[in-house]
């Protein structure tokens, strides 16, 4: 009897262990539910959400959300190219007064300098001075009956682009576009840069376990309160209801550019919102590109650049950077990613 009882307990223990292993083997799912959430409208013409998995008190979260709101509003206004705001000069002002030096907030100068660094890093594939070309595409997509901009109009506009047209005078605190027909458009970098500034603010306060999603531009602070990572799913282009890839991430940024987010259709053909500076047409190498690295601004810039580069060129660029990883998904659902993601990525 004694022997049998001992065996039973041993077996039961083994079975329970087996069940536990079976249950937890699938994917890392945290039991920890998002505790607080706040949505921001409509900074950067998109939706932003701040979520807390930190198990902090509501008052604390609301305070953080309010501070993030202030940061996002600040950058939304500085980088807005469609509206000007009383008492300040922003990119819209600089564009309107192209040819003249405009005194701006030092933050804006810092941004333009960073944009120049990113332009150099991506060999011009991410370029905020592409405004004149992008404007033609914006107008075309927003028309009552959307159309494709004429080739010669695009070619003419392209003559008024290039970072050499941007004059930064730090001592005077001014920005000047040397060409009156040039304009700046921060769309490819603004969200990431703003998200990073917000993350910086929260980080300084010691906040951890938060996620900030600004229209597909996600910034994680630390891990969740139970030490589990944040889970991100990227959609399968052939079956958008399903996922192609999932990632387990902590304390980093994940930015995705896709052709299925913002697009317009002309004669049955889809035109996405990311314009390739070489063809002056929407890029069509991939259906989505995701970049994972610490800094949200860099991730945003790289994602735009990679979307407009061949896989070989993009892979070479990412490989040359430390702490930066990427995922490319083609329209036929094929996927490539950099090795650094091996431990955090799952193909669905």
């Amino acid at each position: 009897m004694k022997t049998s009882f001992g065996k039973i307990s041993g077996l039961t223990a083994a079975l329970v262990l087996l069940m536990v292993i079976l249950c937890s083997c699938s994917r890392i799912t945290s039991g920890l539910i998002k505790v607080h959430s706040h949505t921001f409208y409509p900074y950067f013409d998109t939706v932003g959400t701040l979520s807390s998995y930190a198990l902090d008190k509501e008052e604390e979260f609301n305070q953080n959300a309010a501070e993030v709101n202030t940061v996002l509003e600040h950058w939304h206004r500085l980088l807005d190219i469609y509206n000007e705001y009383e008492g300040m000069s922003n990119l819209c002002t600089v564009n309107r007064l192209a040819g003249q030096a405009v005194k701006v907030d030092p933050d804006l100068i810092a941004f333009v300098k960073y944009a120049k660094d990113m332009c150099d890093l991506t060999k011009g594939e991410m370029d905020i001075s592409l405004g004149a070309v992008l404007k033609l595409w914006h107008d075309a997509s927003k028309a009552e009956k959307p159309y494709v901009p004429a080739e010669d109009a695009l070619a003419e506009a392209a003559k008024h682009t290039g970072f050499d047209l941007v004059e930064i005078d730090e001592s005077a605190g001014t920005l000047r576009l040397t060409d009156p027909l040039a304009s700046l458009d921060a769309g490819a970098l603004g969200k990431g840069y703003a998200a990073e500034r917000a993350a910086e603010l929260l980080s300084k306060k010691g906040v951890t376990g938060y996620g900030l999603n600004l229209g597909g531009n996600i910034r994680f602070l630390g891990s969740k309160a139970d030490d589990s990572p944040f889970t991100v799913g990227i959609r399968d282009p052939l079956n958008p209801e399903n996922l192609a890839v999932t990632l387990n991430l902590s304390d980093c940024s994940c930015v995705t550019s896709g052709d299925y987010e913002r697009f317009f259709t002309v004669d049955g053909r889809r035109y996405c919102h990311i314009i390739d500076k070489d063809t002056l047409m929407p890029a069509s190498y991939f259906t989505s590109v995701s970049v994972i690295c610490k800094d949200s601004g860099m991730a945003d810039a790289l994602t735009t650049a990679l979307f407009c580069m061949s896989f070989e060129d993009g892979f070479a660029l990412i490989s040359s950077l430390e702490g930066v990883e990427a995922v490319w998904i083609w329209i036929d659902s094929s996927i490539r990613y950099t090795m650094g993601l091996d431990s955090v990525i799952s193909l669905v």
């Binding site: 998002k34 939706v47 889970t231 991100v232 799913g233 896709g258």
Partner: peptide
């Protein structure tokens, strides 16, 4: 200013892009 969000399912990811 409207969002429709799915909740209460086990099929869960923190973010879907």
């Amino acid at each position: 200013r409207l969002s429709v969000i799915v909740r209460g399912t086990d099929d869960s990811y923190d973010y879907v892009l």
